[in-house]
Simulated scan of single mutants.
Amino acid sequence: MFRNIKWIFWKEVRVFFGTYLAPLVLGGTAFLNSLFVLILNFNSGTNYAETTVVTFLSFMSTILIAMLIVSMGSITEEKNRGTLELLFTSPVTDLEIVAGKFLFGALVCLIVSVLVDGLFPLFLYFFWKAPLYIVASGTVGVFLLGLFTYSVGLFGSSLGKNQMISMLISIMILLTLWVIGFFSYLFDAVTRKVLFHLHIFSHFIGFSKGVLPLNSVIFFLSGTVFFLYLTVKVLESRRWRG
């Protein structure tokens, strides 16, 4: 099992770093971070608390974009190239396919969260004297959001016929979870509590303020597992349909 997962993982790594995707995602993320944070938001009159929140809200935007781009063709392109049918006829299970692709996504997410984004928290620490625990918690939040986004993207890729449809499916899921909390006040107390719990922004904002909220950690991890499970089920149904 682990050998198959490792094989799929390294296949994804070779494709990513052997094509335009690596410079597009990593370089584009660095550029957008610079644009959002250094040019638009950093100024001498800002204190570290405000700057930290702005910085990690910028990271929130760029990690969403990066992981959607990485995931949108993960399964769709396998179908278009005919390699998905090859995987179906090989001794590789659907769970191994999803696990290998997810580990690759986790690697890219880690690179973006720690290495690409790492320069900006250093600015927070050295120039704005932001406590290291805030820098660390914000980075954890970005990483967890990236994992969650990639799992949603994998699910969208398993449903879509091409990369654009996969991207639209994933964006619709994320937008629904993004705005649902803003309209939760329209419902009764119980429904409002449930809808607000599904609100991505409310879970992320705590990390940018130096908090590691357990319910938010559980939300992102359980949501990641849930969408990976749905992806496996979609592949299983596709396998049985031939």
Rank of each mutant, 00 (worst) to 15 (best):
M1C: 03
V54G: 00
L32H: 05
N162W: 10
G181Y: 07
I69P: 06
P23F: 07
P121Q: 03
T139G: 04
G153T: 12
F102Q: 01
S151Y: 03
L40Y: 10
S216F: 06
G45F: 05
V15I: 15
N215W: 14
F123D: 04
L168S: 13
T46C: 02
A130Q: 05
T224H: 05
P121S: 00
S34R: 02
L40F: 14
P23G: 07
K193R: 14
D117L: 00
V211W: 05
L35P: 02
T191H: 10
R81Y: 14
F9P: 04
T93N: 04
R81H: 13
G105I: 00
V37P: 00
A66L: 05
R241G: 13
I39G: 01
L122K: 00
T191Y: 10
H199S: 13
H203C: 07
N4P: 01
M67A: 09
V234L: 09
T29R: 01
T149C: 05
K101L: 07
A30G: 07
W240D: 12
S170T: 13
S184L: 12
V179P: 00
G181A: 08
I169P: 11
I169L: 15
L32M: 14
L195K: 06
F9Y: 15
V142Q: 00
D94R: 04
S237N: 14
V190Y: 12
M72V: 13
I180T: 11
S170C: 14
F59E: 01
V116S: 05
V98R: 02
I180M: 10
L212W: 07
L107D: 08
T55Y: 00
L174E: 11
R238W: 07
G27C: 10
R241E: 15
L228Y: 07
L95D: 02
L35W: 11
N80C: 03
I8Q: 08
F17C: 06
V225M: 14
V232A: 09
I200Q: 04
Q163N: 14
V194S: 05
F219L: 08
T55V: 00
F88K: 02
F104V: 02
